[in-house]
Write a protein that binds this DNA or RNA. Structure first.
Length: 1032
RNA sequence: GGGCGAAUAGCUCAGUUGGUUAGAGCGCUACUCUUACAAAGUAGAUGUCGGGGGUUCGAGUCCCUCUUCGCCCACCA
C-alpha cells in the first residue's frame, strides 16, 4: 500500500489492483451472506449461464446490473446474498460436445454409449464452468462463491426428483403422443428453438383419391395438394370443411372489411384476392358442398398405392379458400393433421424409422429414404393416373440447426406436465402484484403465454440431464396391470411416500421413485421394470433454481431466511420459458413466489442491430473489454447504456495484437478464424480459431469504443481523488460550522444532497443509466470542474484550508460510496488511500465515524435534504455563467491563456457583493480580473459584451482586440435576437395564447421578451461603439 | 398473421406530467503540456426530432396513419 499521496500513480493500475482487491474482499468474507435475524435479507439468484460456452457482453450486462444491486443493498445494511451457478443446458451442451466428437474423432454418441458421452460432457462442463466463474469474478461480481450451484449437482437433483415425484403423485405428470421435430441425421428430437426455416424451391403436387361409393351426380374423386407426397402413405383421412359456403362468406367478409380500410397502394392486391375468391366460389364450391355432404354420409376413399380405405371427413381445418379445398390428413407426420386426428379419432400411422427411412407401414416403399420414396411415390402415382398436376412453389422448410438437414415431424411418446392449475397460480401472482415485472409492459406476454395453459412437454430424448425417475413395465391386460399396481402399493416404500404408481392406457404400469434410492431401483428392475430413457427439459431444473439453490426440499435456515428472493434480473426472451416457470414451481413447491420483482433489461445488439450470439460470431468476451479498459469501465459503460426502452447497439472492432490498430467488425469478417491487419498486414486469430495453425497466432481482442467514456470517467475520478489526497496534508477531522461554509461549499453540499437522493431513487427503480449519468455529471462537471478548481486557491489560504480540506474529503467520501456499486475497484482503492490520510471524514457532529475499513461494507449515504439550497444554486449558476462569458470572449478574441483579461459586470448590488467574493476564482478559472461590479459600474472604453439575463458582462478589450471579429459576432447576435424577439412578439400578440395559456407561462414569455429587448439594445450599443472605435 | 418496442447531430444515445432558441459522449475544428488528469482543459461547428395528417394558444413529447428496423408469439395441405 502506498502511503504518500505523491507516490500514487496518475493512472489507476487496474491490472494489478483489481486482483488484489478481489482477494482482499474475498479473504475478508465480504461476499458471504448468512441468515442474520438482525438484518433484512436481500437476495438475488443468478440466471445461471449455460455451460455451452464462455460469457459474452450480454451476460456481462446482466451480471453487472445484479452486482450493482447486491453491493448497493449490502451498503444499505442488508444481508445481501447473490447465489452464483451455471446451467447444464441439456440439448445445447450435448450438441456442442457431440459436434466436437464428430469433428475431432469422427465418432457419434452411439459409438461412445450413454455413460461415456455423459462423462465427456461433464469434462466439458468443468472446463466452461471454471471459465464462466472466472469471468464473473474478474467483473467484480460479489457472489457468495461458497454457494455456487450447478443445475445437475446433487442438491438440484434432489429438488428435481422431489418436484417430479410430487407432480406425479398429484396426477399432473402424464405420457402422451406428441409430434416432435425429428432430426433424422442425428436421430434425436430437437426443440423448436433449434429449428430454422429456409425457403427452398419445391413443388406442390395435386393428387386424386378415388371415392369408393359415390352416388350418381357426385364427384368420384377428391383432389388434395401436398408438398410432401411421400407422406400420403401415412394418410388416414381426407378432410373437407363442414360448411364450405359459410367459410367462404366469412373469408370474403373479412377481405371486404380490409378493402374498405385499405390505402390506395394495397387496394389492387386485395381486389385481386377478392376476384380469385369469386372464381373459387364458382369453380370449386359446388363440388366442396357435395363432398361435405358425402363426408357426413360417411363415404370412404381409396388411398392409391397403399390400397387402403380411408374416410372422407368434415373438419374446419380444411380451408375452402386454399388449394383444392380438400386436405389429406397425415396425423403422425404433420402437427395440424395431428390435431385433426385427435379431434376425429383417426388412426395415427407412423411410416418412418428413426433414421429417416420408411418403415413397414409404408408397404412396398419400406426401407427407402424419404427422398427416394418421394420420387418413387410420385412416379407411381403418375403411371397409375393419380397425379393431377405439379406446381412449382417456394416452401418454407424446417431444418435442424444442428445437422442442417430437413426436420421430419415424427410422432413420439412424450412426458407432459399438466399446466392448468400451475399456470393459473402463476398468473394470479402477477395479476395480484405478488410479483412485479419492470418495465410493466412485459407482464402482458407473460400472462398471454400462461393463459393458454398448454401442457408442458418435459421429456427430451437426450443423455445429458436429469433422467426421468420413472420405471415402467407393460402388461398383457388391464387386470394383470392393476394387480401389479396393487402389489407394489403394498411395498413399505409406498406407505413411506417414496414411490407412486400410475397406469397408462391400455396396460402399462409406471412407478415414480422419489429419491435416488438404489434398493428400490434394484427391486423394480428385478420385477422387470425398465427406467425411462428420457431426461427432463433443462427448464425443469431451472424452474426450481430460486429454491433448489437454497436447499429445498430441506427446510434449511437459508430457505427460511432468503426465500422469496428479492429481485430477478433477466433478459426478455426467457420471460415465458424461465420466469413464468419459476413462479409456478415456487408456488407449487414452497407455497410462495420465488421473487418480488423482475427487472427485464435491454439486449445488447451488434453494430448491425443483431443480437449477440455464438453462432453469429458477433459475441464479445467481457474479458477483452476488461483487459483493455478495466473492469470498472466495463461495468460503468454497461450501466450507462441500461435505459428502459432502448436495446443497446454496440459496434465492435478487432484490436490487432501487433500494432493495436482497430479493425471494424463486419458481417464478412466476424466469423473468420484469422484476420490480416489492415494497418500492419500481420495476421492474428479470433475466437473462431480451431486449427493449430490459427491458434498459434496472437489473438486479436474484440473491443468497443463505447467503453471509452467510462474509462475516461474512472480516470478522471482517480485523478481528482489524487488531487484531494495530495492536498490533505495536515488534515484535521472535525465538523464544519455553517458559518465557515462559503458559497462554493454550500453549493457542492447542496448538489451532493440532490445527488444522493437521486441516485438512491434511480437505483430503486432500476434506472441504471440515470444513476450513472447523475454520478458522471456530478463528479466531472461539478466536483472536478468547479469545486476542485475553486479549492486550489483556498488550500493555499491558511484561513480556509481546514474547511476546504474537510469539505473535499467529505464530498469525495460520499461520492465514492455512491459510485461503489457501479465501479467497485477504483472506488475501493481510493477509499483505502483516503482511510490512511483522513480516516474520519464526516463534517457533521451528529454523524458517528464510519467503522468500516472497507468501502464494500461502508454505509450507503443518507441524503441531507436540508443542504439543498436553490438560492445558492442560482447564485452559483450566475457565477459560472460569468466565468463562461469571459472564457467565451477570450476564445473569440484569441487571447492567449497566459494573458490576463479584465472585465466589468453590471448587475444588482446583491450580486455585486457575491461576485466580489468570487474574485480569486475568476483568476484561477479564467485568468481574469473583475474590475468592477454593480448597477453603475463604469464601462471600459473598448469592450465586448455578453448578456446573462440578470447581469451584463463587459470585457475590456483595450490592447487585445480583434475588432472585426467582435463586430461580426455582434451583428450575428443582433440578427438572432431580432428573430427571437419577432417570434415572441407574435406569440404575445396572439389573443388565443394570452387568454388560454396559464398565466405563469405568459408571464415567463413577457419576461423573456423584456430580457431579449435589453440584450438587443446592449448589443446595438456595443456594436456602435466598436464601429466608432474603428472610425467607420 | 397477432403483439411489443424503436426511428432525435456523422456515430451511439438522453429528453420526466406538452411550455423559451432540442441535449450528452464519441468524432470534427481552433487554441492550450495551466504543478490531479492530453484517457485532460477552453471554445466552436453540426439537427426538416422517419413521412403525412390531427388535437392544442403551443407538439420531439398526445392521437391517427404510412414507411423502415428489431424482438416475441403463432402459422405456412
Amino acid at each position: 500500500m502506498i502511503s504518500k499521496a505523491e507516490e500514487i500513480p496518475n493512472r489507476f493500475d487496474f491490472a494489478t489492483e483489481a486482483p488484489r482487491l478481489l482477494d482482499a474482499w474475498e479473504s475478508h468474507g465480504c461476499f458471504q451472506a448468512d441468515p442474520n435475524p438482525q438484518k433484512t435479507p436481500f437476495t438475488i439468484v443468478i440466471p445461471p449461464p449455460n455451460v455451452t460456452g464462455a460469457l459474452h457482453l450480454g451476460h456481462a450486462l446482466n451480471n453487472t446490473l445484479q452486482d450493482i444491486l447486491i453491493r448497493w443493498h449490502r451498503m444499505q445494511g442488508h444481508e445481501s446474498l447473490w447465489i452464483p451457478g451455471t446451467d447444464h443446458a441439456g440439448i445445447a451442451t450435448q450438441a456442442v460436445v457431440e459436434r466436437r466428437l464428430k469433428e475431432l474423432e469422427n465418432k457419434t454418441r452411439h459409438d461412445l454409449g450413454r455413460e461415456s458421452l455423459v462423462q465427456r460432457i461433464w469434462e466439458w462442463k468443468d472446463q466452461y464452468e471454471a471459465r464462466i466463474l472466472q469471468q464473473l469474478k474478474r467483473m467484480g461480481c460479489s457472489c457468495d462463491w461458497r454457494r455456487t450451484r450447478f443445475t445437475l449437482d446433487p442438491m438440484c437433483a434432489r429438488a428435481v426428483r422431489t418436484t417430479f415425484f410430487d407432480l406425479f403423485r398429484k396426477g399432473w405428470i402424464y405420457r402422451g403422443k406428441r409430434l416432435v421435430n425429428w432430426d433424422t441425421f442425428l436421430q434425436t428430437a430437437v426443440s423448436d428453438d433449434e429449428v430454422f426455416h429456409e425457403t427452398i424451391k419445391g413443388h406442390f403436387w395435386h393428387l386424386r383419391y378415388p371415392i369408393l361409393d359415390s352416388r350418381p351426380g357426385d364427384p368420384d374423386f377428391a383432389v388434395v395438394a401436398t408438398t410432401r407426397p411421400e407422406t400420403m402413405l401415412g394418410d388416414t383421412a381426407v378432410a373437407v370443411h363442414p360448411e364450405p359456403a359459410k367459410a367462404l362468406d366469412l373469408v370474403e367478409a373479412d377481405l371486404q372489411a380490409k378493402l374498405a380500410g385499405a390505402s390506395a397502394k394495397d387496394r389492387p392486391a386485395l381486389e385481386l384476392q377478392l376476384q380469385e375468391l369469386q372464381q373459387r366460389r364458382e369453380n370449386l364450391l359446388p363440388n366442396l358442398i357435395k363432398l361435405a355432404d358425402m363426408a357426413k354420409r360417411g363415404v370412404q376413399l381409396r388411398l392409391p398405392l397403399a390400397n387402403r380405405e380411408i374416410p372422407l371427413i368434415c373438419d374446419p381445418w380444411a380451408k375452402p379458400e386454399l388449394g383444392s379445398g380438400c386436405v389429406k390428413i397425415t396425423p403422425a407426420h404433420d402437427p395440424n393433421d395431428y390435431e385433426v386426428g385427435l379431434r376425429c379419432q383417426l388412426p395415427m400411422l407412423n411410416i418412418l424409422h428413426p433414421n429417416g427411412t420408411l418403415n413397414e407401414n409404408a408397404g412396398a416403399y419400406a426401407g427407402l429414404t424419404i427422398a427416394k420414396a418421394r420420387n418413387k411415390v410420385v412416379a407411381d402415382l403418375e403411371t397409375q393416373g393419380f397425379l393431377v398436376q405439379v406446381e412449382d412453389r417456394e416452401i418454407d422448410l424446417a431444418h435442424s440447426d444442428r445437422s442442417k438437414t430437413p426436420i421430419e415431424p415424427y410422432l413420439a411418446d412424450q412426458w407432459f406436465v399438466r399446466m392448468d392449475r400451475l399456470a393459473q397460480m402463476a398468473m394470479d401472482a402477477v395479476e395480484r402484484g405478488r410479483v412485479k415485472i419492470v418495465p410493466e409492459r412485459y407482464a402482458r406476454g407473460y400472462l398471454d403465454w400462461l393463459s393458454e395453459k398448454r401442457d408442458w412437454p418435459v421429456g427430451r430424448q437426450l443423455w445429458w440431464g436429469h433422467q426421468i425417475s420413472i420405471w415402467s413395465k407393460p402388461f398383457n391386460s388391464r387386470e394383470s396391470c392393476e394387480a401389479a399396481q396393487h402389489a407394489i402399493e403394498r411395498w413399505p416404500e409406498f406407505a413411506q411416500g417414496k414411490i407412486a404408481c400410475s397406469i397408462e392406457e391400455p396396460h402399462l404400469l409406471h412407478v415414480c421413485v422419489r429419491d435416488e434410492d438404489e434398493p428400490i431401483q434394484g427391486k423394480l428392475e428385478k420385477e422387470e421394470f425398465v427406467r425411462q430413457e428420457d431426461v427432463l427439459d433443462t427448464w425443469f431444473s431451472s424452474a426450481l433454481w430460486p429454491h433448489s439453490t437454497l436447499g429445498w426440499p430441506e427446510p434449511t435456515p437459508e430457505l427460511k431466511y432468503f426465500y422469496p428472493t428479492s429481485t430477478l434480473i433477466t433478459s426478455r426472451d426467457i420471460i415465458t420459458l424461465w420466469v413464468a416457470r419459476m413462479v409456478l414451481m415456487g408456488l407449487n413447491n414452497v407455497g410462495e413466489v420465488p421473487f418480488r420483482e423482475v427487472f427485464i433489461h435491454p439486449k445488447i445488439l451488434d453494430g448491425f442491430g443483431e443480437t449477440m450470439s455464438k453462432s453469429k460470431g458477433n459475441g464479445v468476451d467481457p474479458i477483452d473489454i476488461i483487459d483493455r479498459f478495466g473492469p470498472d469501465a466495463l461495468r460503468f459503460g454497461l450501466a450507462w447504456l441500461t435505459t428502459e426502452t432502448q436495446d443497446v447497439r454496440m459496434p465492435v472492432q478487432y484490436e490487432c495484437p501487433h500494432c493495436q490498430a482497430l479493425i471494424a467488425q463486419s458481417k464478412e469478417n466476424r466469423q473468420l478464424a484469422r484476420i490480416h491487419c489492415e494497418k500492419c498486414g500481420e495476421a492474428f486469430s479470433t475466437q473462431w480459431a480451431e486449427s493449430e495453425e490459427d491458434k498459434a497466432l496472437l489473438r486479436g481482442a474484440v473491443v468497443s469504443e463505447r467503453f471509452e467514456v467510462a474509462r475516461n470517467f474512472c480516470n478522471k475520478l482517480w485523478n481528482a481523488s489524487r488531487f484531494v489526497l495530495m492536498n490533505l496534508e495536515g488534515f484535521q477531522a472535525g465538523s464544519v460550522p455553517s458559518s465557515d461554509l462559503r458559497l462554493e461549499d454550500r453549493w457542492i453540499l447542496s448538489r451532493l444532497a440532490s445527488l444522493t437522493r437521486n441516485v438512491t431513487e434511480s437505483l430503486r427503480h432500476y434506472r441504471y443509466a440515470e444513476a450513472a449519468r447523475e454520478l458522471y455529471e456530478f463528479s466531472w462537471d461539478q466536483f472536478c470542474s468547479y469545486y476542485v478548481e475553486m479549492a486550489k486557491p483556498r488550500l493555499a489560504n491558511p484561513e480556509h484550508r481546514a474547511t476546504v480540506q474537510r469539505v473535499l474529503a467529505h464530498t469525495l467520501d460520499v461520492t465514492l460510496r455512491l459510485l461503489h456499486p457501479v465501479i467497485p475497484f477504483v472506488t475501493e482503492a481510493i477509499w483505502q488511500h483516503l482511510n490512511q490520510i483522513a480516516p474520519q471524514r464526516s463534517i457533521r457532529e451528529s454523524e458517528s465515524p464510519e467503522p468500516e475499513p472497507w468501502l464494500i461494507r461502508a454505509t450507503w449515504p443518507t441524503a441531507h435534504l436540508q443542504d439543498i439550497d436553490e438560492a445558492i444554486e442560482r447564485q452559483f449558476a450566475m457565477f459560472t455563467s460569468v466565468v463562461g462569458a469571459v472564457r467565451e470572449v477570450r476564445a473569440r478574441q484569441g487571447v492567449a491563456p497566459r494573458e490576463l483579461i479584465r472585465f466589468v459586470v453590471q448587475c444588482s448590488d446583491d450580486m455585486a457583493m457575491l461576485l466580489k467574493d468570487m474574485g480569486p476564482f475568476f483568476s484561477s478559472l479564467a485568468n481574469a480580473q473583475c474590475l468592477e461590479a454593480g448597477q453603475h459600474a463604469p464601462l471600459p472604453a473598448l469592450r465586448a459584451h455578453v448578456a446573462l439575463g440578470q447581469a451584463d458582462v463587459f470585457v475590456d478589450l483595450s490592447g487585445l482586440v480583434d475588432v472585426d471579429a467582435e463586430i461580426s459576432r455582434n451583428e450575428k447576435l443582433l440578427e438572432n435576437l431580432t428573430k427571437q424577439i419577432q417570434s415572441k412578439q407574435n406569440k404575445l400578440n396572439n389573443e388565443n395564447f394570452v387568454s388560454r395559456a396559464p398565466a405563469d407561462v405568459v408571464a415567463k414569455e413577457r419576461d423573456s421578451l423584456h430580457e431579449l429587448a435589453h440584450q438587443k439594445s446592449a448589443a446595438e450599443e456595443v456594436l456602435a461603439q466598436l464601429r466608432s472605435s474603428k472610425g467607420v
